[in-house]
């Protein structure tokens, strides 16, 4: 597919398909991304969910989804998608349902499931060539349980289990590359603050078959400790500082879809969030700040060649 329906902001859907009144926090970047994703994916979908913040979207007897939903468990959503996809294929083949009744299996999980507990189920679903879209809203921690660090937590971030002066000692795991190493049909990073880039990628993913990942960095006012009204700013800064590269993997190649022309210093992004405040107060932690900046620079140096 070469032509996109989404060339300008005004081409984006103006009303949302996903219902309102859900219990996510104000300013939830995960929900923002999900709204935009759902508008493009549409209601011929069954969302297969793992334990996390989004589990509370569908609380008996209500749901914001116009399509279907199955909650599984923290580690098992890709396997749930496998069972549904296989069962639909069997019924299509037997003529028990028509293609009108067919559904896209969409896995929806947080980073905790996607980067960690669900990794084995995910890797083997990709290996089997399962026809599904995996949406990971990445809030960089176990949000639902109170933002403990996960394998997606960035270096030095304060979480409820990394409260020391250095913050989280580890480094964010590269899920994009782990997926790409499986040679799936599509992998893309997105963010709700860049709706046009996001919509084009979902549009592309929707047209493809096989395993597809949409990895959405999801600014989380509650876990990242900033005012909910700043969610969009934090999202923009994640892209403009280059700490969250927008890219896609297709046909064996990685393409950056939005290369920040002049990258802002990464501390512009960090200092907006309470989870990094210990790097600035009571005094600047130059060593950690430089380290983070150097890693971002090294990443882009390799891309820009």
């Amino acid at each position: 597919m070469n032509e996109t329906l989404f060339r300008r902001i005004k081409d984006l859907p103006s009303t949302h398909l996903l219902g309102t009144g859900v219990p996510t926090c104000a300013g939830c970047g995960g929900l923002q991304a999900l709204h935009q994703i759902y508008d493009v994916l549409g209601e011929k979908t069954v969302f297969v969910n793992a334990a996390g913040c989004m589990t509370l979207l569908s609380v008996y007897p209500f749901t914001p989804f116009r399509g279907s939903w199955l909650y599984t468990a923290m580690a098992a959503a890709p396997a749930g998608a496998q069972g549904i996809r296989d069962a639909l294929d069997i019924q299509l083949k037997k003529g028990q349902i028509t293609t009108d009744d067919d559904l896209q299996a969409i896995v929806l999980t947080g980073d905790g499931a996607a980067y960690g507990m669900g990794m084995s189920a995910t890797s083997s679903a990709i290996e089997r060539g399962l026809d599904f879209v995996y949406i990971c809203y990445d809030n960089e921690g176990y949000g639902n349980t109170g933002q403990q660090y996960s394998e997606a937590t960035p270096h030095a971030a304060r979480t409820s289990t990394s409260k020391g002066p250095q913050g989280y000692p580890g480094y964010k795991k590269d899920l994009f590359s782990i997926w790409a190493a499986h040679k799936p049909s599509y992998v893309a990073t997105v963010i709700g603050a860049e709706p046009l880039d996001l919509a084009r990628k979902i549009e592309k993913a929707k047209e493809k078959q096989g395993p597809r990942l949409i990895l959405a960095l999801s600014p989380c006012p509650t876990g990242w400790d900033y005012d909910p009204k700043e969610s969009a700013d934090v999202g923009h800064l994640a892209v403009r500082t280059g700490i969250w590269p927008l890219k896609e993997y297709e046909d064996g190649k990685v393409v950056h879809t939005k290369v920040p022309r002049k990258r802002l210093p990464v501390e512009e992004y960090l200092k907006r969030q309470g989870r990094f405040s210990h790097l600035f107060e009571p005094m600047r932690n130059e060593e950690i700040l430089t380290g983070i900046q150097e890693r971002v620079d090294a990443y882009w140096a390799e891309i820009e060649g």
């Binding site: 297969v48 199955l70 599984t72 468990a73 580690a75 098992a76 890709p78 396997a79 749930g80 998608a81 496998q82 069972g83 549904i84 296989d86 069962a87 639909l88 294929d89 069997i90 019924q91 028990q96 084995s120 189920a121 890797s123 083997s124 089997r128």
Partner: peptide, 26 residues
């Protein structure tokens, strides 16, 4: 029938339940 080897019994039972919930005999 169609048989799929999952990567664990945790996934196997999930797939079994999900397929049954989609309406086939598992």
């Amino acid at each position: 029938a169609r048989m799929v080897t999952l990567e664990s019994e945790h996934s196997m039972i999930t797939a079994a339940g999900a397929a049954a919930a989609t309406g086939v005999r598992v």
